[in-house]
Design a protein around this nucleic acid. Structure first.
Lengths: 282, 282
DNA sequence: GGGCGGCGATACCGCCCGGGTATCACTCCT
DNA sequence: AGGAGTGATACCCGGGCGGTATCGCCGCCC
């Protein structure tokens, strides 16, 4: 199988429409139909169910979509990492660290300081991501190492080291009746009728159904909370960067959050190793 | 990057010789040279150092070799798993379990029994591998789930559950002076001058340098020990299948071995989930 | 119910690119 | 100096990929 075929299939599987997929790929529809047809013939499997109203995925198609995404990420990672290795060899060593925007700010600063103090430390580019983007960024080679948060982020397929575990707090508008309580139970927070929990995007960019407002980053979130339109449960490290007008109340029975440092399992980079060493020694 | 290019590069990187690589790929040498040249041009990186006596890998080439192997495994896995998903949908559900030939025999039997007793259990094909082959078999989709042994096997990139931990024993010819000892220290076993430890193949099929005989599986190993040409340190579970003429002596200070069940991180197969459940419940 | 619009498949064509053969350029080694 | 070995280059050919035109099929709707 060629990556071209995989890219074509992923496009069709995501659009569920040959015409739109062809447009997205920048080719005409007929060669796309033929490519998918050939793929199905060689695999001996029907991947798409053609109805008169667009197409749907078969079970085999679902499997191929998942696997093809992983394979294409691996191919892209190969390309990116090779390019970066060439730059490193040419005397511009750099390591790209992915971190969630608005989270672990203090830990991140300490880590960068600690690593910079090591002998042989190289320049660290920090790549700030929206929630949930980091695993993908690490998988497809845009980053070399990442700070992730269990149990929120998907750690599957990475090597990791735990760095820090903390409880979570509810963030409420300062004037809210519950804001003066010394602590809250999880069920109390999820049930506030006028302050729904926000909805975060899934990895594919769509949002789950529900009452809460859609948010993509912590800025939107804090703004919505300050406006009295939502509340949220976040790791307590957020407290150090809490705006005015917001109050954090501990939620002892919420799941504890662990910050981990993660890297692709076959990384041989000394810079990544150095960052991991610095992180675990914090 | 197309998989064709990756396959070409891996062939050259492994053979370190354009002519032989071309032969292995079933093409002529000139198109191979051109393909690699084009790859280097597009990546903007020199991958191979051309000397008059064959070629050597640059640092970027080393990176691409590692990444390309991973990417090609992912592509192959996509192909295999899709084929198997189509068969499953067509009413032939099967799950392929990889196990090291000659190890964990008893555990494997118990696992198969326990899983078969579950409601909805499907047929399990057992794929017996040589030592070190299993991770690759799982990575490229030839197997769905595997029994591996920490710290021997490379668990990087898989989800795992620990099943069982055991000590190791030294296997000696029955008549050997040390065979009557109640236990041995690790240093004593590695230093027996007339019974060297054997050499196992690396993942790429080559052997490390050293005095011991080359072995590829446990049959060869037991035979060599029975002939008085080697000794070995193996998990104590081997005792249940020890031939006559061989003696096992505990080595308390050798590293303990954990049998784990491993599966690709994004597996959605209910059969794999069932096997893992049965295994952890043992 | 027949025309129409939307969608995917098919037919056919042209061109680029991947592969083949022949040959060159360079470097060791004798 | 000559020859063997190795990778690069020159040149040609054919298959495959992509393009346009069109068909077949199914809903829909006036």
């Amino acid at each position: 199988m060629e990556t071209r075929e995989l890219r074509y299939f992923v496009a069709v599987a995501e659009e569920l429409h040959f015409g739109r997929a062809a447009q997205r790929l920048g080719i005409a529809q007929p060669p796309l139909s033929r490519a998918i047809g050939g793929l199905e013939r060689r695999l001996g499997a029907l991947l798409l169910e053609r109805g008169s109203r667009g197409v749907t995925l078969t079970a085999a198609g679902e499997v191929l979509l998942r696997e093809a995404r992983a394979a294409l990420d691996a191919v892209e990672a190969a390309e990116r990492r090779t390019r970066r290795a060439a730059l490193t060899a040419a005397g511009h060593p750099t390591v790209i660290l992915a971190a969630k925007a608005g989270a672990s700010g203090e830990l991140l600063a300490k880590l960068l300081d600690a690593y910079a103090a090591e002998p042989g430390a190289v320049a660290v580019d920090v790549l700030l991501c929206g929630p949930g983007e980091q695993a993908g960024v690490l998988r497809d080679g845009r980053a070399d190492v990442a700070l992730l948060h269990r149990p929120f982020d998907d750690l599957a397929g990475f090597d990791t080291e735990d760095l820090h575990t903390e409880g979570q707090v509810a963030v409420l508008p300062a004037g809210h009746p519950l804001a003066t309580r010394p602590h809250l139970r999880l069920a109390e927070v999820t049930d506030i009728p006028d302050l729904p929990l926000p909805r975060w995007p899934r990895p594919d960019g769509t949002f789950p159904n529900g009452p809460g407002p859609k948010v993509r980053d912590h800025t939107q979130l804090t703004q919505l909370i300050a406006l009295g339109r939502a509340c949220a449960i976040v790791p307590e490290a957020i407290r150090t960067s809490l705006h005015e007008g917001l109050t954090a109340v501990p939620v002892p029975d919420s799941p504890r959050v662990t910050t981990v440092i993660a890297w692709p399992p076959h990384s041989r980079s000394t810079a990544v190793a150095g960052l991991v060493r610095a992180a675990t020694a914090l």
